[in-house]
Write a protein that binds this DNA or RNA. Structure first.
Length: 394
DNA sequence: GATCCACGGGAATACACGGATG
DNA sequence: CATCCGTGTATTCCCGTGGATC
């Protein structure tokens, strides 16, 4: 455990034996500075970025691997470190009109979930390059694009952009990213990160370099869970046997493992226990749909969509029996200030994106018209509820 | 005044089914 | 028997409006 976590643990521990010391430490959407068990992948990525140490850009690349395999963990850690290490060798002043010469590229990490329009994408990149703040509204797409181009103009300085979570239902795919970044400048290179295997992607949009991030081995997952539990939970909160069981259940998916751990810990804490019992773990695992939409995707949704989801998961069975009923109940909930038609549109959109699922009712004889459908969450609801409530201070 | 984008609302379309039609 | 039609819902699609920001 690093010093920061130790201090945090002491700081938050007010003397009582709190089971959950730091929710962030067991939050599947939060990544640690030093990823566990991804040595070979890190080496592979370092080989790939090697040219930057000579001041050149590597070729564009596509990093891919299944859900929960640590793609985001490893790329965020790598870009963060590169940015930190390489920027101190040349203290440069970036402005949109002038970039003082530097030997090494600038590194920018962009989450496609937060860059879902052309404007937002260019904005995110520009914001990562220049010192000054970039307006988010009031200026047109053309003007933000040309400002970015200006910033990239001096070809002696270059930028490597990581675009994470490419190809999700609500984010740009590889082709769209390529189409938008390719024409910008020679001094801009990109590394896209996504789930889809290259075989399922058209050849002409695949960048020259492909890097695979395979699923975690079971023992690696055990290490990850152990480490996260040790920095986020009270001592000996999770037995080794339970850890093994969890890792084995998660089947290589670190997101699911941590989500279940989170849910189990929260349940145990709610019952006033000082450690996670077997039944807590079982309940935690049962609460994670498989496959599960990652909690990060849910948390990245717009505020009002989260408001709707937050209300949705508190509805009783009856109210979720149809989109109509759910709409009415949600629109009438405390804290929801949206019209019924907007709530309904959101419910359909969320289902379309796979965040919830619509299950059409079995036909009941005598009923007239098209049968309604039940609304079921496909994400870790307990984790969402807790993180949402923590952040909104409920 | 310009711009982006979330809301809201309504029109168009899809689906399910029983009954009529060819 | 296969198809079409009418009725009633469910779902999708689309676009104008307005808040917030520059």
């Amino acid at each position: 455990m690093d010093l920061k976590s130790r201090i945090r643990r002491r700081q938050r521990n007010d003397g009582s034996t709190r089971l959950v010391v730091d929710y962030d430490a067991i939050n599947p959407a939060v990544h640690v500075e030093e990823p566990t068990g991804r040595g070979p992948v890190l080496e592979r990525l370092l080989d790939y970025v090697e040219p930057v140490f000579e001041g050149d850009l590597p070729p564009d690349a596509y990093v891919f691997g299944p859900s929960g395999s640590g793609k985001s963990a490893v790329v965020t850690a790598l870009f963060e470190q590169l940015r930190r290490v390489l920027s101190q060798s040349a203290s440069i002043i970036h402005t949109s009109t002038r970039v003082l010469t530097s030997d090494t590229p600038t590194f920018v990490y962009v989450d496609a979930r937060e860059a879902a329009s052309d404007f937002a994408l260019y904005h995110a990149i520009l914001d990562g390059i220049v010192e000054e703040t970039v307006p988010q509204q009031g200026i047109g797409l053309d003007s933000i694009r040309s400002r970015l181009q200006d910033a990239l103009e001096p070809y002696d300085s270059s930028v490597l952009v990581a675009v994470d979570h490419v190809g999700e239902p609500e984010t740009y795919g590889l082709a769209e990213i390529a189409g938008r970044l390719e024409p910008m400048a020679d001094s801009l290179g990109w590394t896209a990160i996504g789930r889809a295997a290259p075989a399922s992607i058209a050849d002409d949009v695949l960048p020259p370099e492909r890097i695979e991030v395979p699923s975690y081995e079971r023992h690696a997952l055990v290490d990850i869970v152990t480490e996260r539990a040790s920095s986020g939970l009270a001592r000996r909160a999770l037995q080794h046997e339970e850890t093994r069981q969890l890792a084995s259940w998660a089947d290589g998916n670190a997101h699911d493992a941590l989500a279940a751990l989170f849910a189990a810990a929260h349940r145990a804490a709610g019952s006033g226990r000082s450690r996670i019992h077997h039944e807590d773990l079982s309940a935690g695992m049962d609460g994670i749909p498989r496959p599960s939409v990652s909690i990060g995707r849910v948390l990245a949704l717009s505020d009002n969509r989260k408001v709707v989801l937050r209300a949705l998961i508190d509805l009783d069975e009856a109210a979720r029996e149809s989109v109509d009923a759910a709409t009415a109940a949600i629109a009438a909930s405390d804290g929801v200030d949206l019209s019924e038609s907007t709530v309904k549109r959101f419910l359909y959109e969320l289902a379309e994106a796979g965040i919830t699922e619509r299950v059409t009712h079995p036909r009941s004889t005598g009923e007239i018209g098209r049968p309604p459908s039940r609304v079921e969450p496909r994400f870790p609801t307990l984790v969402f509820r807790q993180l949402y409530d923590l952040r909104s201070g409920v």
